[in-house]
């Protein structure tokens, strides 16, 4: 059992019961635990067929031959190996509230551990205004420690530019698969089109939007000098209850637009405030969103 500083042992034990889910089948991919409609050399029995010359003799059902004097070949289910890529937002906006970035790292670590336990192949790709060095892991739970160290070493920096990131991602990772994005999706240029590009290239989307409580319902009132965490732009504003209510409405509209993009492309969406315990987020929100099962 790996000793992960981001997640405690008890929590990891609970995560072992889960598995990542995706809906699409990605042709030509083998491995992993998800069921496939292709027969092949797998572990689990699928069907019988008559023997043809050239077939693997190891798959002949010799017990049936002894009884029936005919040779039948056992068919096994192929387990496809789908690439899972996790894009983790490391921009400054994620550090406007330090809990938000920590929360994002712990959530990413949790999903990676779920995948590792199921022998999925994971690629954790930090991004801000561009893709940073990725970490590829797979092969079982014992590979979790290097991944955890990698996540701990991440530091938020830079502005968010989803278009740049997506363009680079599609260029570097042409193989289709499951794309999990953990971010606040706060990009001054907008993120809808960029995310749509990912889906258009045949990837399955799993969008996890994080926000700090004050990101959605700011508690401040009175005279404020607001500074954007990424751009440094300032706004002198008098905040009252009406302004706070209007702000929350705008934020909810934005979150709804992100969700629309995900669902429109047969993907999944989960909005998680950082004051929600991680336990509840994974075993509640993510399961409810059918991202894990």
């Amino acid at each position: 059992m790996p000793n992960a500083p981001l997640l405690d042992r008890h929590f990891l034990e609970r995560l072992e019961r889960l598995a990542l889910r995706w809906q699409k089948s990605f042709a030509g991919l083998v491995g992993g635990h998800n069921r496939s409609r292709f027969a092949g050399g797998g572990q689990e029995f699928l069907d019988h067929r008559g023997y043809h010359q050239g077939d693997d003799l190891r798959a002949v059902n010799w017990r049936a031959y002894m009884r029936l004097d005919k040779m039948f070949l056992k068919l096994f289910q192929i387990e496809p190996r789908v690439p899972v890529r996790l894009l983790l937002d490391c921009s400054k906006s994620m550090a406007a509230n330090p809990e938000k970035f920590d929360y994002a790292r712990r959530l990413a670590a949790s999903l990676c551990y779920v995948g590792l336990v199921r022998h999925d192949t994971f690629e954790v790709i930090p991004f801000a205004d561009g893709i940073q060095e990725a970490n590829i892991c797979g092969g079982g739970r014992h590979r979790f420690t290097p991944l955890s160290n990698f996540l701990e070493a991440l530091q938020p920096s830079g502005d968010t530019s989803f278009l740049k990131v997506v363009r680079r991602f599609l260029n570097d990772y042409p193989q289709r698969g499951l794309v999990i994005i953990i971010s606040d999706f706060l990009d001054e240029a907008g993120c809808d089109k960029a995310i749509q590009y990912i889906a258009d290239y045949g990837n399955e989307l799993f969008l996890i939007q994080l926000w700090a409580p004050e990101d959605r319902t700011p508690p401040w009132t009175g005279e404020l000098d607001l500074t954007d965490a990424e751009t440094g732009a300032q706004l002198h504003i008098h905040v009252d209850s009406d302004a706070r209510r209007a702000y929350t409405e705008q934020f909810d509209k934005f979150a709804e637009s992100i969700k629309t993009v995900a669902l429109r492309n047969d993907g999944k969406y989960a909005g998680i405030p950082t004051d929600m315990p991680l336990d509840d987020a994974i075993f509640g929100t993510l399961i409810h969103a059918r991202g894990v099962a």
Binding site: S93, M94, L186, L224, L226, A229, L235
Partner: peptide
């Protein structure tokens, strides 16, 4: 203390309709 407080926020986009 409260004439004008400075506040760093994740984004300004929702403050202005």
């Amino acid at each position: 203390d409260r004439t004008r407080r400075r506040q760093v926020v994740a984004t300004l986009r929702f403050w202005v309709n």
